[in-house]
Structures are given as structure tokens and as C-alpha cells.
């Protein structure tokens, strides 16, 4: 039986809590052990994400895009394994293959936006005095992501890619019913050379970790994927503690073209406006 780790600070570890849960395949007797992450694992992951943020956010946007292309390439290289895991999680062979392909495409899509979204969303603003007035984008910081429960790969990739391409670092809680591909995605990110700490992936249970994911004061944004009203209320209340940005992504067909767009990047950008005097 395979034991899956959690991906924190560029390394695969076991949970500090020593707790595990078992995943049983939809068909057959295949099973795996997964870490039931604790709040301390989350805290450590936030520390790692905070540590990685300065360098990642100041890297050239084109370099971030380049890394995402490399991730797409590495993901394609792991097609067989990912497709097998997706089948364990209940997809047909054809659907699994399509999901991997859609994930590769999604990464390439956001990689392309890396050095372009700024042009689209930044502006030179009209003002009534002798100033240039610019609005430019800056990443918010550390984003916690509650990944979609139903779409274990393309949904996960669609959640992570726009967050990191904009220069944020993140901590992800994978789907608890379909967690396999999330850990494998961690391996892909590692082998593609994504700097340690930019993406941290935990497995475990949303019911236990939702409070931590949304209340930690060193987290600057929350991406909530799902539709549970009670959870969303918790997210919004906790986010108010330090005014985290909240983005809500309801259940949708993640592989559809409509599920992608530059506004997903904008969700975790701050707008900085600068007044610059014009010499007369």
C-alpha cells in the first residue's frame, strides 16, 4: 500500500500529528494511506509560504510564466500515473485522460498570462491636477486554498495556477475524498523546479482545518472552492479578522473553457495607485 506524504517547503514529509486516513479505490481493492494534516502542519506550511513569497513575488513575471510552462511539461510527463489515480478516484479511462490533458492546457493558459495580465488590469488614470496617476498590481501575499472536492486535478490546477502566476505563494488543502492527484501534483511541481514553499499541499479534512485556513493572521487571501453556505460563512467571518481577500469559486465544470480567465489572477492582486508630480 502506498503512503502519500504532504508537500511543504519543497519537501515531502509525513504529518507531524502522526494521523493518517485511508483512501479506497472506487473499484478493486487498491488503497493508500494519506496524511491527516493538523493545524501545526498548516502553520508550518504558512511559514514556508511566507518565506518563499519575497523572492517569488519579485521574480520577473516572464520567469514565473516559464516555470509554469515547465510544470505543464512535467505534468504531461506524469500522465500515466495521474490518469491511473484519477481512475482510482472513479473516472473512466477516457475521462481521466481528458482531465489530465485539460490540466496541462490550463497551466499553459495561465503561463501565457504571466507577463500580460498587468497590461490588461493596470491603468494610467485621469486626474484633475498636474500628476501622473498610475494603478499597478501587486500580489497580496500568502493565499490559502480550499481546493474543490469534486474536481481533483483540473479543479486543483485551476485554483493554484492563477494564484501563483500573479506572484503569490499558497497553502492548499486537497480534496479529502479525492486526494491522490494533489500529492502527485506536488511531485510534479518539485520536479519542474518550482521554488520550495511557493506551493504547499496538505491532505486532510476541511471540517477540521477550515478554521485554521481562514483565521491565520499571516494569510492574506482565501480561495474557497465549494458551495456549503455554513463553510462560506465561516470563511467570510474569519477572513474579516485581518481583512483577507476572499474569492469564492462555486462548483462548476472546471475543465470548461469558461472556467479560466485573467480575473482569477486579479482576485489575489492588490491595486497600488501612485501619484507622480509632473514637472512644469
Amino acid at each position: 500500500m502506498r503512503n502519500y506524504g504532504i508537500y511543504v517547503d519543497g519537501k515531502f514529509n509525513r504529518t507531524e500529528s502522526g494521523r493518517y486516513f485511508q483512501f479506497r479505490a472506487a473499484q478493486g481493492d487498491w488503497a493508500a494511506n494519506l496524511c491527516n494534516s493538523s493545524r501545526k502542519d498548516f502553520r508550518d506550511a504558512v511559514t514556508a509560504a511566507r518565506g518563499a513569497f519575497a523572492k517569488w513575488s519579485s521574480a520577473a513575471p516572464a520567469a514565473r510564466g516559464q516555470l509554469l510552462y515547465q510544470v505543464a511539461e512535467a505534468l504531461e510527463g506524469r500522465k500515466a500515473q495521474l490518469s491511473e489515480e484519477l481512475q482510482h478516484q472513479g473516472l473512466t479511462a477516457a475521462a481521466a485522460e481528458a482531465e489530465v490533458q485539460a490540466s496541462v492546457n490550463r497551466l499553459i493558459y495561465y503561463a501565457g498570462w504571466a507577463d500580460k495580465f498587468q497590461q490588461v488590469f493596470s491603468s494610467v488614470n485621469p486626474v484633475a491636477s498636474s500628476h501622473y496617476n498610475f494603478s499597478v498590481l501587486e500580489p497580496v501575499g500568502v493565499v490559502s486554498i480550499l481546493a474543490p472536492e469534486e474536481s481533483p486535478l483540473v479543479g486543483l490546477v485551476s485554483a493554484i495556477a492563477p494564484v501563483i502566476v500573479g506572484g503569490n505563494s499558497c497553502v492548499v488543502l486537497a480534496s479529502s475524498s479525492r486526494p491522490l492527484c494533489a500529492v502527485t501534483l506536488g511531485e510534479v511541481l518539485q520536479s519542474a523546479g518550482l521554488p520550495a514553499g511557493v506551493v504547499n499541499i496538505l491532505t486532510g479534512f476541511r471540517s477540521e482545518l477550515l478554521g485554521q485556513f481562514t483565521s491565520h493572521m499571516d494569510v492574506n487571501g482565501v480561495l474557497y472552492c465549494g458551495e456549503a453556505a455554513e463553510e462560506l460563512k465561516t470563511v467570510r467571518e474569519n477572513a474579516a479578522l485581518n481583512v483577507k481577500r476572499v474569492s469564492h469559486s462555486p462548483r462548476a465544470d472546471s475543465s470548461a473553457e469558461e472556467a479560466q480567465g485573467p480575473y482569477a489572477i486579479l482576485s489575489f492582486q492588490e491595486v497600488k495607485t501612485t501619484w507622480h508630480p509632473i514637472a512644469t
Binding site: 485554521q212 491565520h216 493572521m217 499571516d218 485581518n242
Partner: peptide, 8 residues
């Protein structure tokens, strides 16, 4: 009961 940030 909430993890803190050095920002504060």
C-alpha cells in the same frame, strides 16, 4: 486562539 503574523 489564532496564529499570528509578524506584520502586526
Amino acid at each position: 486562539g489564532v496564529y499570528q503574523s509578524l506584520d502586526y
